[in-house]
Nucleic acid binder design. Structure first.
Lengths: 251, 251
DNA sequence: TAGGATACCTACCGATGAGTATGATCCCAA
DNA sequence: TTGGGATCATACTCATCGGTAGGTATCCTA
């Protein structure tokens, strides 16, 4: 049980050139934050694998080769750990929104850019925590906090949809229902995606968005539009389905 | 704590005319099944409200105004209770598949019919159990069983998509990814739908399917196609969004 | 080199909740 | 009326797990 010195000082001795006073203190802080992040990431991976309730803090600690009190040294509660995982994922999506702000492209393209990052976030190790966290597991205060963040993203999507309908880049539709459908499809990635998958989150998102863009009813006469289904960002068309046995309803 | 005789004999004395031998025995059986179903439904509702892990069997028992051993009299374990809820929901979807078998309509219409029932099932009290059950909560055997059922549904959807592409009623697409997108959007209903909602599950499903059918990229010249978004089965167009504050990421 | 902060451990507590042992009560059939 | 099955309650067991108490080793600063 003595893993004591197996992880002596993970990755801290790099900026050793600056020998100012408090340097070591700052380095210590850096090390602290690094370790804390490692705790959060380990938790996210365990939650992802086994679910929140089936993951004990002993599990997380074991994964890091430390003991439970060590985890508590970096985090105040299991709930807060879940919250941190949630935040880490949501931050990727919020960043995507910030990126598009100020762009001049049609709203549909801006929306697509956001949703591609959205899909990537869902396929990341934090996807589970974002999509599958039950707010019944959380204290009322934290539940409110998370709901607010979710609502912010939701309304960001709806706004882009409305703008798209106005600028003509999106077919007239109900923004709320459309946002639900888009987010639902993308959130579901967190249910079936695992890292050994052959497609990246971005590729999956691009594939989904192509479906949403074209629709399933056959388009008029020019069949060449099928080619449009290929994603933009250099991701090759995922026409070749992965071999893994997954079902939409399955994890 | 003594609710003993508050539910004396729920709903059994109906076929009292037939005084055959074993009649009371059969009636007893009927009563047993009725009570058992009531237990399953109560469990589904509690799981739906608070999640599987936050629902104790004492909660379910209290809801039925009985005690825990009574629940165990009708069910062998909590896991089995969850499984029964899952089955009840899935059965609705399988019935939808059976209904379409033998129909002559284009595959897209058959698919749409199935998915409308799918959406209804997701909005039902069993939606949570179908969509949100983590198979890590289940024993390996039961997990396999559930996965098989999910896979059956998944492949049914994929097959209809393939048929649609072949008969020309569906725009060429990757069946696997399309099935994921469709199922994801519909499964997500179980996350945000509550019974007090102004829309029925069928209406929501119809609204989603309209989006999937038309696509978000503007269609050619005739703008009248917007009217097509209205669902078929007498459900009025859900253009008026419900007032509830829900976010796609939120429950 | 003392003193304090940092980082981590061993060993525990307390609550929760799944599942059960045991027995009481009621109804039906012989 | 008597026995047996069906139904349900009281009162437990037992394992798990979140969280803590209290102590120890290490390193930095003064």
């Amino acid at each position: 049980m003595n893993h004591r010195r197996s992880t002596p000082a993970p990755a801290a001795r790099q900026s050793a050139g600056k020998a100012s006073p408090w340097a070591s203190s700052r380095e210590r802080q850096r090390g602290h934050k690094l370790k804390r992040d490692a705790v959060v990431r380990a938790a996210a991976r365990e939650f992802n694998r086994k679910g929140y309730h089936n993951t004990s803090l002993d599990d997380i600690a074991a994964r890091l080769e430390v003991t439970k009190p060590t985890v508590y040294y970096y985090v105040t509660s299991k709930e807060q750990l879940l919250f941190q995982c949630f935040l880490a994922g949501v931050e990727q999506i919020r960043a995507a929104f910030r990126d598009t702000r100020g762009q001049q492209a049609p709203a549909r393209e801006r929306l697509w850019a956001v949703l591609r990052h959205y899909g990537e976030a869902m396929a990341s190790e934090f996807g589970w925590c974002m999509a599958r966290t039950e707010d019944q597991d959380l204290s009322p205060a934290m539940s409110r906090h998370i709901k607010a963040l979710k609502s912010e993203i939701d309304h960001g999507i709806r706004r882009l949809i409305r703008e798209g309908v106005q600028d003509g880049s999106i077919h007239p539709c109900d923004p709320k229902m459309t946002a639900f459908a888009l987010a639902g499809a993308l959130n579901w990635i967190a249910y079936w995606y695992r890292e050994d998958q052959s497609l990246t989150g971005g590729q999956i998102a691009a594939s989904f968005l192509a479906i949403f863009e074209t629709g399933l009813r056959p388009r008029g006469n020019r069949g060449a539009q099928i080619a449009r289904r290929a994603p933009r960002r250099g991701a090759r068309t995922p026409a070749r389905p992965a071999t893994r046995r997954t079902a939409p309803l399955a994890r």
